[in-house]
Design a protein around this nucleic acid. Sequence first.
RNA 1: GGCGCCGUAGCCAAGUGGUAAGGCAGAGGUCUGCAAAACCUCCACCACCGGUUCAAGUCCGGUCGGCGCCUCCA
Length: 496
Amino acid sequence: MALRLHDTLTQDKAVFEPRAPGRVGMYVCGPTVYDLSHVGHARCYVAFDVLYRTLRHRGFPVRYVRNITDIDDKIIQRAAALGEDPIALAARFAREYAADMERLGCLVPDVEPRVSDHLPEIVEMTRTLVEKGHAYVKGGDVYFSVRSFAPYGKLSKRKLDDLRSGARVEIDEEKQDPLDFALWKAAKPGEPSWDSPWGKGRPGWHIECSAMSLRYLPDGLDIHGGGMDLIFPHHENEIAQSEAARGVAFARFWLHNGFVNIAKEKMSKSAGNFFTIRQVLEHVEPEALRYYLLGTHYRAPIGFDVAIDEQGGLIGFPGLEDAERRVAYCYGTLQRMGERLAEPAEKAAMPAPFEAELEGFDAKLEGAMDDDLNTAAALGHVADLFRIANDLCDRQGKKQAPGVRKQLSRIRELLGPVSATLGLFTDDPASFIARRAGRILARRGLASAEIDRRVADRTAARSAKQFDRADEIRASLERDGIELMDGPRGTVWRVA
RNA sequence: GGCGCCGUAGCCAAGUGGUAAGGCAGAGGUCUGCAAAACCUCCACCACCGGUUCAAGUCCGGUCGGCGCCUCCA
């Protein structure tokens, strides 16, 4: 089996092989830190986290580089609006971003370079482009000459003449061609600036990714990723800068994730129809968001449901709440498995029918991930696994079957690669369930101690065979969204 | 206008030519004092029209509908 990835350059899937055996260089465009990250960012970084995890799980030594853009027009604008220092504002949102990533279960990249730490590399690459005739200086600005790079448009499948005719960009008198873009911008009063051969200034938007990616992946990139909206112009420009400067291919595989849509339209800052990651995490566990995102293939658009009351107030996120119930089901199953496995050992051998179904799982999971990281298909197989686990756990008393423990521990082993590659089900089951229950109860204004008391009342009524009274209490708890489960070890409750 | 993507059950969603994974909702059942949970069973003329093929949701052409990029954007 071999991992196949979809490459935007060829618009086709191909078997992934690193250019140099023994190491994989992977670069993902990180955020411009002028605000909190939203669900669209979450999707991108979760998707590439899965790629990172999968590569590592397959034994590739990976160097994962994900930048932080902390010098940018928007940061300067936002800082001016808030009366805050731009560098400080960027540092603040970079911390918030890191916290969001951690909560979503995204592994920390090997390198997270910041633009403000890499001015020398950026200046150097810009200087090289000027020397090679791919860039020109106008006043204190430096522009990349798009016409000087023949393959321009190869990633986004655009022709220069099409772009020109459709261009709605204002004609900048300083540019030789409207398509040219700034590598270096002359300083304006009150803005952060750095010294350069062209005077004080700061980097343009695209150059930082070329300079920083090649700084940490000097042999070139095996994989370059980001959102589909970066294909043009950002990634197209990165290719132009990098390949014009070095004369060699920049990245082998270009991977782009699809958008998160609200009411069929792309979630974006500029459209204002976005929800931040932490807004979402006020309503559901982080793992629910991760599970939800992985339920759709990373290149396909994913819808984001929002429930609004009549006054336009936010009620919640129905799709995410469904996902959370599903994650809770999985953790509930893991909890049952743990309890069952703690029981005394059996002697009987594993019966054949289950064995076959379980043994096929590894290959199914691997096959799904091999197919351009088909996490949705992978989760379909994971669903089978949890169903089998519950069925096994049900086999008690009269339905006792041999080999249950052995099979459950096998299932637990099979879940290892799931956690390793998808980053799911890594929490302690009891912790997840308790945390979720606590959050939902708090939202409903309920306390678990009070529920315990009501449950105890019902238990007393049941012992006295006062079933009407017992059912009355059950109904009352149900109205509060509490489900009761009478078992051999007594009654337990949980939030619906 | 240029380039590109998508249309699979009530909803979400996988499906790299050989008679449609999975989840939610719904119906029936097992279990239960009653329930719940869990499990079992049931539930698809793959937008439409042509074409290629022994065989098409899957390939090609067209129609209709939706979306994205071309300006900051994950």
